[in-house]
């Protein structure tokens, strides 16, 4: 049985998901946030991190149309569009500090019907403390392809 480490992310409103242990670089408390006009409401802010301007994703707004319950906890996530391309960074609003957890193969499960709103960007899912936890496909959620699907443009 294989066990992997992951980060459990809490977005408030009962929304939880996980990312791979190597996909969360750092947690920032109360970073300076800037609003950018003419952007989707679920990603209308940026922050500056190590001289990069990063998008800040509000997953609760994306999923259920409710703004993140806190704006002072930001996870800096890493993802790659392609294994040959450089790593990219992005901010994710969290409702609490992400928690390091262990996930084993025997915890894996199907995405339950009541969590189907995660499906477009869910890599897989596992059970933890009687709750199904989706694993987020970060590269897809930050991609133009996903954005195009949301807004029907290319």
């Amino acid at each position: 049985m294989t066990t992997s480490k992951a980060w459990l992310l809490d977005f408030g409103y009962g929304l939880q998901a996980a990312v791979g242990y190597n996909e969360m670089w750092q947690i920032l408390m109360s970073p300076k946030i800037f609003e950018i006009p003419c952007t989707p409401k679920y990603c209308n802010q940026v922050l500056v991190f190590q001289d990069r301007i990063l998008p800040l994703l509000d997953i609760s707004y994306l999923l259920i149309g409710k703004k993140s319950i806190r704006d002072d906890v930001v996870g800096i996530a890493l993802y790659q569009d392609d294994a040959k391309k450089p790593v990219k960074y992005a901010g994710i609003n969290c409702a609490s500090i992400p928690q390091s957890i262990n996930v084993s193969d025997d915890q894996m499960c199907e995405l339950p019907s009541e969590l189907q709103y995660w499906k477009p960007f869910c890599l897989s899912c596992f059970y933890r403390e009687n709750q199904a936890i989706p694993i987020i496909n970060l590269a897809y959620i930050f991609s133009l392809e996903f954005n195009s699907l949301q807004f029907g443009w290319k």
Binding site: T39, C43, V46, I53, L54, P55, F142
Partner: peptide, 27 residues
Amino acid sequence: IQELSPVMRLSKSPITHLVTYKDQIAC
């Protein structure tokens, strides 16, 4: 100058890139 992240783009938006300017973000 950094390209606007794909996740932030809207077809109606005139903004293509972002840059830091005087402790602010310029579009």
